[in-house]
Design a protein around this nucleic acid. Structure first.
Length: 478
RNA sequence: GGCGCUAUCGUCUAAGGGUUAGGACGAAGCCCUCUCAAGGCUUAAAUACGGGUUCGAAUCCCGUUAGCGCUACCA
């Protein structure tokens, strides 16, 4: 039975790497018909913040993937304490009474980073005596040193890993305030929650040797491990809010009008590939194709810049998903966007507009600007010069507009009828179709670039069209 | 410093001994076309460096360089 967990700690905020780790866990769980667990690793009381916890939920909820079980380490502190003393009782840990402040300096200077001198060898009696005297201490793991022992495991992504115990320091299990460290709490929970696969960032690859030692000391089999390459900034540095700004936040993409699934799809392609040329993939496609075989080992750059926080490929992928949506589906997604823009958009109108702008937007947020003339009573001001067609002059523009007005007064407002009538009108006054259409387009839309003319006129409607044609002629004469 | 990991077009990546080193984004050009898009076609663009092994290396080995990670009573 596959059981995986995503275990963020609520310090800082949810940056783009976290949802990716979540997604890979989720994909593996779904692929294996297993269980996805969300666990909040909040053992560092000093650094936890509610804002950070909120941003984790905001981000994950937006992804719309969900999870099956939820835990919080702060609810389970007893578990870690008991487990730590069991490890101690088994002889795999010892008390270290070295004062906190002294430790860092001494270690650096003496090069004694493996353990604090003397503490490892303290007799049980001496150790107990100092506890009784009220001395604070850290509970440290006793790494089997000078045994020639190497810790080994096979990572599902990085392959065979091995490290000598002589290169592993006596890391802490319990802090002097009694709280468990990350390493300890994480391992204890992984055992308690029967985690089968630990899927996490590559920054934990080196830590895994310690974790395996802990599992051994608890007398249990270690889960399998799959480490994921990291997401980094274009300058090669790891993503940080301080250095790279809000671009590294999940909310950047959400607020830019991305479809949650497009974002998921994009993140999947950073460090993983389906072993074929597919890029745009549905949720089910991703589940079906996912395996750790397809995960590569080098860090992936998220391609953002100061003036453009969005990775161009993410934008393209979003557009591809947007274009693939049904008109009804897209219209439903666009409705709140139009409302937020202050447009008088009833769902029926939105539904009419949707097919005309679908291929002209890359994000949902592009829609209001692309569709303004469908909703605005009064067009935004435009340069009358835009009314003048290619190889034409103001006179030609005015003539085209006047003729168009006549035609539109009586024409059937359907695509085919408008097409036929306006083309005939162009021939009638001896101008090319394009020279006829361009002034009309600018008059009705307020700009040169817009959706196809006849469909547009149809949706804008006769009254508004006539009004705007009149206004255009007026503009031309001023 | 010690230990660990990584290294293919600008970016995401394929190719795990034999390919003109493939695809995608982005860029440029062309086609389509009532504009803009969308779509189609084309072009430019990469195996970090140096040694091996081999008939043959992007691929295996060693070294160098660079980047990242761990080296906390952070996670």
């Amino acid at each position: 039975m596959v059981r995986v967990r995503f275990a963020p700690s609520p310090t800082g905020y949810l940056h783009i790497g976290s949802p990716r780790t979540f997604i890979f866990n989720w994909l593996f769980a779904r692929r294996q018909k297993g269980t996805m667990i969300l666990r909040i690793d909040d053992t560092d009381v000093e650094r936890n913040t509610q804002a950070s916890l909120d941003s984790i939920f905001d981000g994950l909820n937006w992804l719309d993937l969900g999870w099956d079980e939820f835990y919080r380490q702060s609810d389970r502190l007893d578990l870690y304490t008991k487990a730590a003393w069991a490890i101690h009782a088994a002889g795999h840990a010892y008390r270290d009474f070295t004062p906190m402040s002294a430790a860092a300096d001494d270690r650096a200077e003496l090069g004694a980073w493996l353990c604090n001198p003397g503490m490892r060898e303290l007799s049980p009696e001496e150790s107990d005596r100092r506890v009784a005297a009220g001395e604070p201490f850290v509970l440290r793991f006793r790494v089997p040193r000078n045994t020639g022992r190497r810790v080994e495991f096979k990572d599902l992504v990085y392959g065979e890993q091995s490290k000598s115990c002589d290169d592993i320091e006596d890391f802490a299990l319990l802090r002097s305030n009694g709280a468990p460290t990350y390493h300890h709490a994480s391992c204890v929970d992984d055992v308690d929650l029967r985690i089968s696969h630990v899927v996490r960032g590559q920054d934990h690859l080196s830590n895994t040797f310690k974790h395996i030692l802990i599992f051994e000391a608890m007398g249990v089999e270690a889960p399998r491990f799959a480490h994921l390459p990291l997401l980094i900034a274009p300058d090669g540095a790891k993503l940080s809010k301080r250095k790279h700004g809000p671009v590294v936040s999940v909310t950047t993409y959400r607020d830019a009008g991305f479809l949650p699934h497009a974002y998921v799809n994009f993140l999947c392609l950073l460090g993983w590939n389906p072993k074929d040329d597919r890029e745009k993939m549905s949720r089910q496609d991703l589940i079906d194709a996912f395996s750790f075989e397809g995960v590569n080992r080098s860090n992936a750059v998220v391609n953002f810049s100061e003036n453009d926080p969005i990775d161009p490929k993410a934008l393209w992928l979003n557009s591809q998903h947007l274009y693939a949506m049904s008109h009804d589906e897209l219209a439903a997604a666009l409705q709140p966007v139009f409302e937020a823009a202050g447009y008088a958009a009833d769902p029926a109108k939105t539904r009419q507009v949707t097919p005309l702008i679908q291929e002209r937007i890359k994000t949902l947020n592009d829609a209001p600007a692309a569709a303004d003339f469908f909703f605005l009573d009064q067009l935004a001001p435009y340069d009358p010069a835009e009314l003048i067609p290619q190889k034409g002059d103001a006179a030609m523009a005015e003539k085209a507009l006047r003729v168009a007005r006549q035609v539109l007064e009586t024409a059937n407002f359907t695509h085919d009828a408008l097409d036929a009538a306006l083309r005939a009108a162009a021939t009638g006054i001896g101008v090319k179709a394009g020279q006829m259409f361009q002034p009309i387009r600018v008059a009705v839309c307020g700009r040169k670039n817009a959706p196809p003319l006849f469909e547009t006129l149809e949706v804008v409607g006769r009254d508004a069209c006539l009004k705007r044609l009149d206004q255009a002629v007026e503009k031309l004469n001023n």
